[in-house]
């Protein structure tokens, strides 16, 4: 569906169901240089199991208009405006990587509107190497390949989605990203220095979904975040790296189900 957020056309995949603002709302927030596609299976599941789903393309990403927002704080406030545009008072947020930081900050800034947060592939701080940032700025294809290499634990495949070559799909999706968006997104992650303070302010229950073979946000990097959150539980995903929703879609889904249903 299309929404108008801050006068900009925003696309949100609704899991194949008509969005009903009367149902509990679940908003999926993607990571750097990605779009709603990364939540395909999970978003369809929850749309058919009690939730109204908005798997958004963030501004300047995928089918959405506008420019990529330039800070995690800006993304968090944009999420509140997204809920307004959708006619939703309260929502659950599920965020991956950069999207997880946006969800965390949104829960801290807008506690009356965020009822639960699921943070996948998250870390605070989420430092990005100088090498990757430099590539993202000047040689995006090189950066896409670096991310791909570090994000797919199943480097030789064996995907549970029939016929899907996940490293190829990840690369193709990043190549669709708007020029310059990867650098902005990664800079957002790298520059976000107040995550632990935000975590301490979060009042709602939080789930940390940690891929055991994540090289982008290694499992240990979620340690401080887990300590800072008041009401937190953890789910570990075997056989997956940072691209866990694609590499182990069912395991990620089961972790979310246990938290949300």
């Amino acid at each position: 569906m299309e929404l108008i957020v801050r006068d900009t056309k925003i696309y949100a995949y609704t899991g194949g169901k008509t969005f009903d603002p009367q149902k509990p709302a679940l908003v999926f927030l993607h990571g750097a240089a990605n779009d709603h596609t990364v939540w395909g299976l999970q978003s369809r599941y929850f749309a058919n199991h009690g939730y109204s789903v908005l798997a958004v393309d963030l501004p300047g990403h995928g089918r959405s208009g506008g420019e990529p927002l330039a800070s995690i704080g800006a993304l968090a406030d944009w999420v509140a405006d997204l809920l307004n545009a959708a006619g939703v008072e309260k929502a659950v947020l599920a965020g991956h990587s950069m999207g997880s930081l946006a969800a965390l900050e949104a829960a801290a800034r807008h506690p009356s509107r965020i009822v639960k947060i699921a943070l996948l592939g998250s870390a605070v701080p989420m430092a990005v190497s100088d090498q990757l940032l430099a590539a993202a700025k000047d040689k995006p294809e090189k950066a896409y390949r670096m991310i791909n290499q570090w994000s797919n634990a199943l480097g030789l495949g064996g995907n549970t989605v029939p016929g899907a070559w996940q490293p190829g799909a990840s690369l193709a999706l990043m190549r669709r990203a708007k020029p310059g968006s990867l650098f902005i997104d990664l800079s957002n992650c790298n520059d976000y220095q107040t995550g632990l303070e935000a975590a301490a302010q979060v009042q709602c229950p939080a789930l940390l979904v940690i891929a055991k073979r994540d090289l982008m946000t290694p499992p240990r990097a979620a340690g401080d975040l887990a300590k800072a959150l008041k009401d937190v539980r953890k789910a570990e995903i075997d056989g997956a790296g940072h691209a866990m929703m694609a590499e182990q879609p069912d395991r990620v889904l089961d972790a979310l189900r246990a938290f949300l249903l």
């Binding site: 030789l156 495949g157 016929g163 070559w165 190829g168 193709a172």
Partner: peptide, 13 residues
Amino acid sequence: EERVAALEGGVGA
């Protein structure tokens, strides 16, 4: 399917 997609550099097959 996955193997040939990998060899070709595609998203799937």
